[in-house]
C-alpha cells in the first residue's frame, strides 16, 4: 500500500516511493536514466542492497527499465487500454498510435473435443481452427494469443493473410459482427518456451484474458486466450449504475 508508507517502513519501501514520486512529478523524465545505485545509496545514506530492492520492484511494475551496462531508465508511460469496448489487438493499439504486426506460431484445423465443444456450444466432433500467434507493438512482443474458432464461422480462414487482416475485419467480411464478449482476467505463469516468445526473461507471470465472443445472433464465434506482458499496459474499466 503505497499510501501507508511511513518513516517506520523498511528503507527500500520508502525509497521505492521516493523514486515513484519523482517519476510521477516529472523530476525523473521518461527515457532518462535515474541516478546509479551508488549515488542513491550515498544520497540517502542507505545500503546498496536496499537501493537494489527498491529499483527491482519498480522494474517489475514497468516504471523503470534496465539496459545492460547503461544503467536504469524511466520507461515511457504504459498504455492505458480500456476493457469495455470490443476491438482486436490491432485496432486497439493503432488507436493508441502504435505500429503492429503479428507472427503465427501455429495454425491448424482440429476437432473441438469435449472441452472446447462445451465452451463454444458445438459438438465435440465439430471442426475448429486453432491459431497461436505473437502480437507485436512497435516491433516489441506484447501479447500471445490463442484463438479457437468454429470452422462454420469463417470458410477457408487459412487462405486469408492473418497478418494483413484483423479477425474483426475477417468476421465483418463474413457478415458477422461481434457484439458481446464476456471476459475474465487472471494472472498466469507461462511455460519457458512461451515466455521466450514474449521476450520475458525473469518471472514469467502474465495477465491472462480469456473469453468467448458472441455475434449479433448470440452465437459463440470465438474463444480466445490472450497473455499480455504485465509491464506493457494498465487496463481501465468505466462503470455506471444499472437502472433496474
Amino acid at each position: 500500500m503505497s499510501e501507508t508508507i511511513s518513516y517506520r517502513s523498511p528503507l527500500y519501501l520508502q525509497l521505492r516511493e521516493v523514486i515513484r514520486r519523482k517519476i510521477e512529478s516529472g523530476e525523473y523524465l521518461p527515457g532518462t536514466p535515474i541516478p546509479s545505485e551508488n549515488a542513491l545509496a550515498e544520497q540517502y545514506g542507505i545500503h546498496r542492497l536496499s537501493v537494489r530492492a527498491a529499483i527491482s520492484a519498480l522494474l517489475y511494475e514497468g516504471l523503470l527499465t534496465s539496459a545492460q551496462g547503461k544503467g536504469v531508465f524511466v520507461t515511457m508511460p504504459k498504455d492505458e487500454r480500456d476493457l469495455e469496448t470490443v476491438g482486436g489487438f490491432r485496432q486497439t493499439m493503432e488507436k493508441l498510435g502504435h505500429k503492429t504486426h503479428t507472427r503465427i506460431i501455429s495454425k491448424i484445423t482440429r476437432k473441438a473435443g469435449e472441452y472446447y465443444g462445451d465452451i463454444l456450444k458445438i459438438s465435440p466432433e465439430a471442426c475448429i481452427y486453432y491459431i497461436k500467434r505473437v502480437c507485436y507493438s512497435d516491433g516489441e512482443p506484447y501479447s500471445l494469443e490463442e484463438l479457437y474458432i468454429p470452422t462454420d464461422v469463417v470458410d477457408n480462414l487459412f487462405q486469408i493473410d492473418l497478418d494483413l487482416f484483423s479477425m474483426y475485419q475477417i468476421y465483418g467480411l463474413n457478415g458477422i459482427t461481434v457484439t458481446r464478449v464476456h471476459q475474465f482476467l487472471e494472472l498466469d505463469e507461462l511455460d519457458r518456451s512461451d515466455a521466450n516468445l514474449l521476450d520475458i526473461k525473469d518471472t514469467p507471470t502474465v495477465m491472462k484474458f480469456r473469453g468467448v465472443s458472441y455475434d449479433q445472433h448470440g452465437r459463440a464465434v470465438e474463444y480466445a486466450r490472450t497473455y499480455t506482458r504485465v509491464d506493457k499496459c494498465n487496463f481501465t474499466v468505466h462503470y455506471t449504475r444499472k437502472e433496474d
Partner: peptide, 9 residues
C-alpha cells in the same frame, strides 16, 4: 478472477 462484459460499439 476479475470479469467484465464488453458490448459494442
Amino acid at each position: 478472477v476479475l470479469s467484465s462484459e464488453m458490448k459494442i460499439i
